[in-house]
Design a protein around this nucleic acid. Structure first.
Length: 597
RNA sequence: GGUUGUAUAGCUCAAUUGGAUAGAGCAUCUGACUACGAAUCAGAAGGUUUAAGGUUCGACUCCUUAUACGACCA
């Protein structure tokens, strides 16, 4: 397709030279896909040529159309509508293109000339509570972007930076020590991450009670928040942690260990993985070294109280704190360390951070600080900034208990898929294990597709009912098309129908056949664009377009009943190729496709 | 207060980056299973693209101002 467009551009450029004696570079021409309501596949916008050629847009279209029809065999027809020259590509050319696609092995990279060594950091949870809906968007985005970049031939490392230290973890630990009675995930029968979360909630509850009590005693709210005994205890615990207090460290290791087991289970269930883990406890010291480096280079400065700052006013940002007066690190300190470590480990030419857009400013600062330090990898950093997920009831707020838990949500979507699938009654003959696997594939397919089809940059609304829907613009709609193709191929095999034939001499194509080939031919463009813009939504839209086009084709023409042997083989092959394309696209989204459903 | 993002059909989202009559899904209405899987397909209806100006042959897209909602920085 890309090649075909290049050829058409070149031909148009030549046509302009011949017909008007003016030179216009091929890549300057404005070419776009022809809109559905007109005949043709490629459209030249001739408005932009009127000045250079000194003729009206319609006149130009007519002249170029005639020249191409006469001189370019691949153009079988044309029509001019106002300033648009619509070009029809010969069916034989489409078939040639199709044959090329069929012969391409699965997993052939789409070379884009983009970055080759990439690190994608995503998920990056705190260890004081379990994953929620917002994390799911992050995880699905990160996994998918990594897969998309891989599809362009890049070597991609998926990294997870675990925020395993800080005041929030101490809160869970403190509450556990006070109220836990030695409970463990095993003894309580709950996942480790949920157990930690339980004590975090417990801390918040008692903490709030203490604040209320202080307020009742006449203490001002902001002071009460700082002076509540639980908060003081948590801060003491954090200091002890930084000093390496044995008891605190032991408890910290124990609780984090539980949390990691819980996370691993969730990651496995939702089908994401990581090649490399980083822990903030292991990078914040390295970050402090970077701060020291900046002081020595004279790009950072120390205030009277001993705190370290960087002046980013020239970059359009403010002064930014890098290290507290007491020498303890802040978030950005650790990020400086992690960036350095990642570069040491992988020497990337692109480092993607999948982080919500509430941290846009923070990420700008990080990049600016690394530039101040003259780090070679500063420009390779890309913040994949995604919008937060809202509920119909508004923002998710842990304080108000409106957070949608990831594990629970996954259970619900799988259950919904199970109910719907059993209702359809099309899966007789599958074992219990196979059925369970299928429900999981469908439920997760629905959820992932729902979260990935929206442009990452945009804030999105999570509607629970729509997220488990199996009809319309959904994951299961696409999965269904794949299952139907798989069924068709099984039948074709039973009937001894070959998928191989000489496609080039089939004669005229049906409209739905031609459209199907055009869709299939777009794949490389789609991957290129998705990689360039870090947008799985583009792939999601494409997978839907494929399924939609196939369903139309399927309704309009007969495949197995087609009397002409060559056409029959072609349609089976077209179906098979569509199945491959759907599977490949969905894989880029991290979504499995079933053989039946 | 400063910086920044968003605003498209009743609802949720698109619009190939400045091109044709702004497209899908859901919801509503109509039609298609004794044809290869109806989780499907075909069709109807639904829009002053928040508002007002501006640039352009041409604006949902770019510029200015205003309004609403969000995020961040104090």
């Amino acid at each position: 397709m890309q090649q075909l467009e290049q050829d058409i551009r070149a031909a148009l450029s030549a046509a302009i030279q011949q017909a008007f004696g003016v030179t216009v570079a091929a890549d300057q021409l404005v070419i776009q896909p022809t809109r559905k309501e007109f005949a043709g596949s490629f459209t030249l916008v001739t408005f932009s040529l009127t000045k250079a050629l000194g003729k009206g847009p319609e006149q130009i279209g007519q002249a170029l159309g005639e020249w191409l029809s006469a001189h370019e065999v691949r153009i079988s027809g044309f029509n001019v509508v106002k300033g648009f020259l619509n070009l029809e590509v010969a069916d034989r050319e489409w078939l040639r293109l199709f044959q090329g696609l069929v012969q391409q092995p699965d997993g052939t990279p789409v070379l884009t000339g983009g970055p080759q060594d990439v690190v994608v950091e995503y998920s990056s949870p705190n260890t004081n509570k379990p994953l929620h809906l917002g994390h799911l968007r992050n995880n699905f985005l990160g996994y998918s972007v990594a897969e998309i970049l891989k599809a362009t031939g890049a070597t991609v490392t998926k990294a997870n930076l675990v925020n395993d230290r800080g005041i929030h973890i101490c809160k869970s630990m403190l509450a556990y020590r006070q109220y836990g009675n030695g409970e463990t995930p095993q003894s309580a029968g709950i996942k480790g991450d949920h157990l930690a979360g339980k004590y975090y909630v417990l801390f918040e509850k008692h903490y709030r009670e203490q604040i209320k009590q202080l307020e009742a005693e006449g203490v001002a709210t902001d002071i009460a928040k700082k002076q509540a005994p639980l908060m003081l205890d948590a801060q003491t615990m954090l200091q002890k942690w930084e000093q390496g207090d044995e008891e605190v460290i032991t408890l910290w290791k124990q609780m984090n260990g539980w949390v990691y087991e819980g996370f691993d289970e969730t990651y496995k269930t939702i089908g994401v993985d990581f090649d490399q883990y980083y822990y903030e406890s292991g990078t914040y010291l390295l970050g402090k070294e970077r701060v020291e480096e900046g002081l020595q280079k004279g790009v950072f400065f120390r205030k009277e109280n001993g705190s370290v700052w960087v002046d980013l006013k020239e970059e359009g940002l403010d002064e930014k704190l890098l290290l507290r007066a007491d020498g303890t690190s802040v978030y950005i300190t650790q990020d400086l360390g992690t960036a350095e470590l990642k570069y040491q480990d992988f020497g990337y030419d692109l480092s993607v951070y999948v982080i919500a857009d509430e941290q846009n400013y923070h990420m700008q600062v990080l990049k600016a600080v690394l530039k101040k330090l003259d780090k070679p990898y500063a420009d390779a950093i890309h913040h994949l900034s995604y919008g937060m997920v809202d509920l119909p009831s508004g923002k998710m707020k842990s304080r108000e208990g409106t957070v949608v838990d990831a594990d629970e949500l996954v259970r619900e979507v799988v259950e919904a898929a199970k109910v719907a699938t059993l209702e359809k009654g099309k899966i007789e003959g599958l074992t219990d294990d196979e059925q369970a696997q299928l429900f999981h594939t469908l439920g997760l397919g629905a959820l992932k597709y729902y979260l990935l089809k929206v442009d990452p940059k945009k804030r999105m609304l999570f509607n629970p009912e729509e997220s488990v829907s199996l009809e319309g613009h959904t994951g299961p709609f696409i999965q269904y098309s794949h299952a139907r193709i798989a069924q068709l191929r099984r039948k074709a095999q039973q009937l001894g129908i070959s998928e191989k034939a000489d496609f080039l001499n089939l004669g005229d194509l049906q409209k739905s056949e031609r459209e199907m080939i055009e869709e299939l031919a777009r794949y490389a463009n789609v991957v290129t664009e998705a990689a360039r813009t870090f947008s799985p939504a583009i792939v999601a839209q494409y997978a839907y377009d494929l399924a939609k086009a196939y369903n139309r084709f399927y309704a309009e023409v007969q495949v197995l009943q087609e009397p002409d042997e060559a056409k029959r083989a072609f349609r089976v092959a077209l179906s098979a190729q569509t199945g491959r394309a759907i599977k490949a696209s969905m894989q880029l989204l991290g979504i499995e496709v079933p053989e039946r459903m």
